[in-house]
Structure formats: structure tokens, C-alpha cells
Simulated scan of single mutants.
Amino acid sequence: MKSYNFPDRYLRHADYELVLAVDDGSSLFAADATFHRTPGLADAAWTSFRSHNLPDRHLRHANHVLRLDPISSGSSAVDRQDATFHVGH
């Protein structure tokens, strides 16, 4: 995901945490910085983001950090809420 404030940087996962990084042109960078928008795990009217290269993990916030965690319909309600975002237009 491309940063709005820093247009030369992208959200990329590293060790399951999200960081802002400059695209190094590698295929690994592209895979780490690609997320698939899906119906929200806690509310289908909202949005969740599934990792491209770790498809069993979703973007979520926990303890003030964005990270990738394995979250499914069997996860706790809090886990699903933490992985569900309202995307404004």
C-alpha cells in the first residue's frame, strides 16, 4: 500500500510488523507490500486486508502497532474487529 504522506514509500510487512519502506524493485518487496481488500472480518460493510504472500494473515492493529496475524472466522471477536477498517472515500 502506497503512503499518502510519503509517496515514495509503501507499507510493507517485515517480521509480521508493518513498516514504511522505499520500493527496492525486488519481487519480494512487491509481494510484501501487496494486500488484497476483502469484506471486513467483523463487519462485511467495512474492509479487511489480506497479505498477498502470506494469505493466511490479515493486517490488524494490536498494541498501537500494525501487524500481520492469522485471523479467521474462528478468531475472537476482538481479533476480527482489530482487522476490520473503515475506508473513507
Results as ranks from 00 to 15, higher is better:
residue 53 N to K: 04
residue 57 R to V: 00
residue 42 A to N: 13
residue 65 V to R: 14
residue 29 F to S: 02
residue 37 R to Q: 14
residue 40 G to N: 09
residue 40 G to Q: 11
residue 29 F to L: 06
residue 35 F to Q: 08
residue 28 L to G: 06
residue 41 L to I: 11
residue 43 D to G: 10
residue 24 D to C: 05
residue 35 F to C: 08
residue 52 H to A: 11
residue 56 D to M: 01
residue 40 G to H: 09
residue 46 W to P: 00
residue 44 A to G: 10
residue 52 H to G: 01
residue 35 F to W: 05
residue 45 A to Q: 12
residue 46 W to R: 13
residue 40 G to K: 11
residue 53 N to P: 03
residue 49 F to V: 09
residue 39 P to E: 13
residue 38 T to F: 06
residue 44 A to T: 14
residue 38 T to P: 00
residue 36 H to S: 08
residue 67 R to V: 07
residue 43 D to N: 15
residue 56 D to F: 02
residue 64 H to R: 13
residue 57 R to A: 01
residue 30 A to P: 00
residue 32 D to Y: 12
residue 43 D to Q: 11
residue 64 H to N: 14
residue 59 L to Q: 00
residue 30 A to F: 02
residue 53 N to M: 01
residue 66 L to F: 14
residue 59 L to S: 00
residue 25 G to R: 01
residue 31 A to N: 14
residue 30 A to K: 12
residue 54 L to Q: 07
residue 30 A to H: 09
residue 54 L to A: 08
residue 45 A to D: 11
residue 68 L to T: 10
residue 27 S to F: 01
residue 54 L to M: 07
residue 27 S to I: 01
residue 31 A to L: 10
residue 46 W to H: 13
residue 68 L to F: 08
residue 25 G to Q: 05
residue 31 A to P: 01
residue 32 D to F: 11
residue 60 R to S: 13
residue 57 R to W: 00
residue 23 D to R: 03
residue 42 A to K: 10
residue 57 R to F: 06
residue 52 H to M: 02
residue 28 L to T: 12
residue 43 D to H: 09
residue 51 S to W: 03
residue 26 S to L: 03
residue 56 D to R: 05
residue 44 A to S: 14
residue 45 A to S: 15
residue 57 R to T: 04
residue 36 H to E: 12
residue 60 R to A: 12
residue 66 L to G: 06
residue 34 T to I: 06
residue 23 D to L: 06
residue 56 D to Y: 04
residue 48 S to M: 07
residue 67 R to E: 15
residue 23 D to Y: 02
residue 39 P to N: 13
residue 62 A to L: 14
residue 67 R to T: 12
residue 28 L to N: 09
residue 61 H to W: 05
residue 56 D to L: 05
residue 47 T to F: 12
residue 23 D to E: 08
residue 27 S to Y: 02
residue 22 V to P: 00
residue 57 R to S: 01
residue 51 S to L: 06
residue 52 H to F: 13
residue 25 G to K: 03
residue 41 L to A: 06
residue 48 S to R: 07
residue 25 G to E: 01
residue 31 A to Q: 13
residue 23 D to P: 03
residue 37 R to P: 03
residue 24 D to Q: 08
residue 67 R to M: 15
residue 50 R to G: 01
residue 35 F to P: 02
residue 70 P to Q: 11
residue 36 H to I: 15
residue 33 A to N: 05
residue 41 L to C: 07
residue 34 T to D: 08
residue 46 W to I: 00
residue 26 S to I: 02
residue 40 G to W: 10
residue 39 P to Y: 07
